[in-house]
């Protein structure tokens, strides 16, 4: 792992080992690993041995598996230079549609397909606004964030009553899906193994294939990419579809895991996931930077912190404050290294 990150930070010319060390510590990889070491160290000192029990590790990995899947798909749009803030609402919408269809007696697979297709449809609306009309991605997807959350609530309110009086969640137990989301290999949840495999595959696609280079090119310098003859519009559009696809999968998996589809599912998730990805080296303001491996470590940092808060019985909202400040620190360090400063 550390070898990989050193490679990321070092450049072509040969460096002495000390120089390499310094470089890797001051590079993006160094910041992430340092952050991870600090948070795990804090947890180890504060919570004690419990941090490293296999059950606790299972809890952390199970907590981060679904956000990791959503985050990896969302990272495509960050890389292409378009941020999609609607992923949290999309997770809720997909979950609610899936549960709504299942309750109305539609086969689970077809329900899942319907949920995914509807989310892709809204992803396409984002795409048309941003790519065709050239709308500011943050403002446009902020609109769909609020709009889609409203839609999720409308669907949830119109779901047939199933005994429970609350309209805030559609209870639904899909046995097969639940077994799948809860299954584990020793201390590793199966979902986490799948997510990790996805990280490696995406890492390969981004760094080694022509398509991956094209996405980075569009995000890095769209004018240059256009002049080089790349289909910039199509790449941005497809990357937005990818992020809504990831969110819809995440929503369905959450229904399996929770046994219900709450309308508040994924509230603030867009913020946490993008903060994690930015900690991992992505940027919501410029594309072309970051890699899935860093994104994974960023999500791991936040998951370990959430676990720490949980184990110490602290106010869960302390995590919001931590994430907010960590984001500022990381972005500031990036600017010190020569990242995009404001004016």
């Amino acid at each position: 792992m550390s070898k990989n990150l050193t490679q990321l930070a070092s450049h072509d010319h040969k460096m002495t080992s000390v120089e390499k060390m310094k470089k890797s510590l001051s590079g993006p990889g160094g910041t992430i690993v340092l952050g991870l070491a600090i948070i795990i160290g804090t947890s180890a000192l504060w919570v004690g041995k419990m941090t490293f029990t296999s059950f606790n590790v299972y809890l952390i990995l199970s907590y981060l598996a679904i956000p990791l899947i959503i985050g990896i798909f969302a990272s495509f749009s960050l890389l292409a230079g378009v941020v999609d803030l609607s992923i949290g609402a999309m997770v809720a919408l997909s979950a609610v549609i899936f549960a709504f269809c299942c309750i109305n007696g539609i086969n689970e697979w077809i329900s899942a397909l319907i949920a995914i297709l509807i989310c892709l449809g809204f992803g396409a609306i984002n795409g048309v606004a941003i790519v065709v009309f050239g709308a500011n991605p943050i403002a446009a997807t902020l609109g769909s964030l609020v709009g889609l959350r409203g839609l999720a609530r409308i669907i949830s309110n119109n779901a047939p009553a199933t005994g429970s009086s609350s309209t805030d969640a559609i209870p639904l137990m899909v046995t097969g899906l639940n077994d799948f989301t809860e299954s584990q290999v020793s201390f590793m949840p199966v979902l986490f193994i799948i997510a990790l495999a996805l990280v490696f595959v995406t890492q390969g696609i981004i760094s080694m294939t022509r398509g991956g280079r094209h996405i980075r090119a569009v995000g890095g310098d769209i004018t240059a990419a256009r002049r080089a003859g790349l289909p910039t519009e199509r790449i941005k559009f497809l990357s937005l579809l990818a992020s809504s696809f990831g969110a819809s999968i995440g929503g369905i998996l959450y229904v399996g895991k929770l046994g219900s589809a709450p309308v508040t599912l994924g509230t603030n998730m867009e913020f946490t996931i993008y903060a994690a990805l930015m900690i991992g080296g992505y940027s919501i303001l410029r594309g072309g930077v970051g890699n899935p491996m860093g994104g994974f470590l960023g999500i791991l940092i936040i998951a370990v912190f959430a676990n720490l808060v949980d184990n110490k019985g602290l106010d869960i909202r302390a995590a919001d404050i931590f994430v907010g400040f960590l984001l500022l620190v990381i972005v500031y360090l990036d600017i010190r290294r020569g990242g995009d400063a404001f004016e």
């Binding site: 609306i125 606004a129 403002a139 446009a140 609109g143 769909s144 609020v146 409203g150 409308i154």
Partner: peptide
């Protein structure tokens, strides 16, 4: 909220 969200998308477009 649904309608306001889409008014915003249309407006920025």
């Amino acid at each position: 909220t649904f309608i306001q969200g889409f008014i915003l998308i249309i407006a920025v477009s």
